[in-house]
């Protein structure tokens, strides 16, 4: 299904203060793939994600969602199709109650009330937070906030799910539950993180980002076995692959 393609073609981006954030990043992600984007702090992960839904536009190069380039006039359509889950759920949950927040996207899409209601209920059920619907977001725990943020994006039925550090701030149980939840989403997933174990659990493919460009792109296990590559990108083998105390 070509309309679910996500393509980055030689992206260059420099922040207004002159800091170069992307220096020619390119990749192509097909429908249904689950891809981890890993890299040290400042490698350009978050900047890259913000290019995928038009929050930032590249200085040169282009992003293509489907076959066509992401141009300013396509941004509303792309934002409906590419669901973005931010690093800090507090940034994402701005409505008075969880239910209002989950309904925010569908209402903006102009769906009829019955459809909005159905989508909200389905998203709350899928993320297992039906009983939190009437609660204000500031009264939720970290794990609950994360689920609510995911529900708010799932309610828009995106073709592509983009997550920025989804496991940050979660306890082991919350993290495990999150992995289970994300596994059920069968469309394209793009996960930026430095939780390499999460990538190992969730993504068959990994893209290593280093100083704004793609250093490696391939099978997760192969990339994580390449210690010199990881070290040169200021990363380490995931704990579970470090043999002496891990699973493998």
């Amino acid at each position: 299904m070509s309309h679910h393609l996500v393509i980055a073609d030689r992206l260059h981006f420099r922040y207004p203060d002159g800091t170069p954030a992307l220096t020619g990043a390119s990749f192509r992600i097909a429908h249904g793939e689950s891809v981890g984007i890993v890299g040290a702090n400042g490698a350009g992960k978050s900047t890259l994600l913000m290019h995928l839904n038009g929050t930032l536009l590249p200085d040169s190069g282009e992003v293509r969602i489907g076959e066509e380039p992401l141009t300013p006039d396509r941004i509303p359509d792309v934002r409906r199709r590419v669901g973005m889950i931010f690093q800090d759920p507090d940034d994402q949950l701005f409505m008075p109650t969880v239910r209002d927040d989950v309904a925010f996207g569908p209402l903006n899409m102009g769906l009829p009330p019955g459809e909005v209601e159905a989508r909200v209920t389905a998203a709350l059920r899928r993320t297992g937070i039906e009983e939190l619907a009437a609660r204000p977001p500031h009264r939720l725990s970290g794990g609950e906030k994360r689920r609510a943020a995911i529900a708010s994006v799932l309610a828009m039925s995106p073709d592509v799910l983009v997550l920025d550090e989804p496991s940050a701030g979660l306890d082991p149980h919350g993290r495990r539950a999150l992995i289970g939840l994300l596994r059920e989403f069968t469309h394209t997933k793009i996960v930026a993180t430095h939780d390499l174990d999460l990538v190992l659990d969730l993504c068959e493919r990994t893209i290593v980002l280093d100083r704004g460009t793609v250093r490696a792109d391939g099978k997760t296990r192969e990339i994580f076995a390449d210690e010199p590559l990881l070290a040169s990108c200021r990363l380490e083998k995931p704990l579970s692959m470090q043999g002496h105390w891990g699973r493998s």
Binding site: T55, R79, F86, D88, F94, F104, N108, S152
Partner: peptide, 12 residues
């Protein structure tokens, strides 16, 4: 960041 996340969900 809040503004970005509102835009990402079609805020107009």
């Amino acid at each position: 960041r809040i503004h970005f996340s509102m835009l990402a969900r079609g805020f107009d």
